[in-house]
Design a protein around this nucleic acid. Structure first.
Lengths: 158, 158
DNA sequence: TCTTTTAGTTGATCTAATCAACCATTGCCG
DNA sequence: CGGCAATGGTTGATTAGATCAACTAAAAGA
C-alpha cells in the first residue's frame, strides 16, 4: 500500500538538498562579501581579490614565487581570465612583475606596499562577512564544515 | 617565542578558509553537474534546471501553484532572468502556462510530460554527481553539512 | 475613482567564463 | 647542434549570467 497515496510529481520528495543548499549559500556569501567590500571602498571583483590572496600566500614562502601559472592552478580558472585579472592588478599598482631568473617566459608577481595595505583591508572585510555568516556556530562546527567541503571538493577533483 | 619566526606577508596565516573552501567546492560541483548532465544529453544551464525543479516542487502541493514569482522567490534571482529562463523552458515544451484564475497578471507554470521525463533524467544525473561528491562521507556528515550550510545562509539573508 | 503595488516582459549593459589563435621560451630527442 | 613538441602568457571573440531601467497590465487600497 501507500503506493499511490500522493503522486509527488517526479521526485519521491527531498530532492538533492546538497546542491541546492550549496548554491544558495554561495550566492548569499558572494553578496555579503561584495557588500562588505563595497562598504570599505574596495572596488574589485572576487576574482581579483582571490588572485591577490594567492600572490600573498606565495609571498610567505619565498621558495616558490608566484607566477600567473600558480594562480591558474590554485583558482582553477582559465589562464586567459587570470591574465586579465593580473593586468588589472598591475594597472592598479597592487602588484608588480619581476623577471623570473628561472624562466624568461614567466614573471614573478609580488604585492606592492599598496597591495599589502589593500589586502589587509580585504581581510578585514572578509572577517566581517565570515563572522556574520558564522553567527551562532561553534568553532567545531565551522571546522567541520570546512573539512567536509574540502573532502567533497577532493572527491570531485579527478 | 615563535613570534617573528616567519613574516607571513600580510595575514598571520590561515586566511579565511571558509570562503575559499566554499568557492572551490561550488565550482567543482558545478563542473561535475554539468558533466553529468551533458553525459546524459541534458542541454540546459543550471538556472533552467533549478527552475524546473521549483516548478516540480510546487506541483506536489496543488494548493500553491507555481508562477514566475515563486521561482524568483525561491532562487533569489532577478525576475528578468527568470522570465528568460521560463521563456526557454516554454520553447522547449518542458512546461506550459495556464491562466491563473486568482490573478490575471500571472500564469501558472506546470511541467509537461516531456518536462517530467526530463526532470527524471536530471535527478538521475544529480544523484550521480552527488554520490560522487559524497563518496566516503557518512549520512550524518552529509546531513550536518546541509544543516550548517542552511544555517549560514540564514545568517546572511537579512 | 485615483493611486500605488505587484507580476511579468523586454532592452541594454556588464561581468565572468570559455575558446581559439598566437608568440616567446623552454625542454627534449634524435 | 637543430628541429619540434610542450609550456607560460597574452589577446580577440564569443557566450552565458546577472543586473538595471523602463514599461504594460492587472490588482489592491484609499
Amino acid at each position: 500500500m501507500v503506493d499511490s497515496i500522493n503522486k509527488v510529481a517526479v521526485s519521491p520528495m527531498s530532492d538533492s538538498p546538497i546542491g541546492e543548499a550549496l548554491h544558495q549559500l554561495l550566492h548569499a556569501y558572494k553578496r555579503a562579501l561584495q557588500q562588505s567590500y563595497q562598504a570599505r571602498g574596495i572596488d574589485f571583483g572576487i576574482g581579483h581579490i582571490r588572485s591577490l590572496k594567492v600572490i600573498n600566500a606565495h609571498q610567505a614562502t619565498p621558495a616558490s614565487p608566484c607566477t600567473a601559472r600558480q594562480i591558474v592552478a590554485r583558482l582553477q580558472r582559465d589562464k586567459a581570465q587570470i591574465a586579465r585579472l593580473v593586468k588589472d592588478l598591475l594597472a592598479a599598482e597592487l602588484i608588480d612583475k619581476h623577471d623570473n631568473p628561472e624562466d624568461r617566459r614567466s614573471q614573478i608577481l609580488r604585492l606592492t606596499p599598496v597591495g599589502e595595505a589593500m589586502l589587509a583591508r580585504i581581510q578585514e572585510a572578509e572577517q566581517h562577512a565570515s563572522l556574520r555568516m558564522a553567527r551562532g556556530l561553534s568553532q567545531d562546527e565551522m571546522h567541520a564544515f570546512v573539512r567536509l567541503a574540502k573532502s567533497m571538493t577532493g572527491n570531485l577533483k579527478p
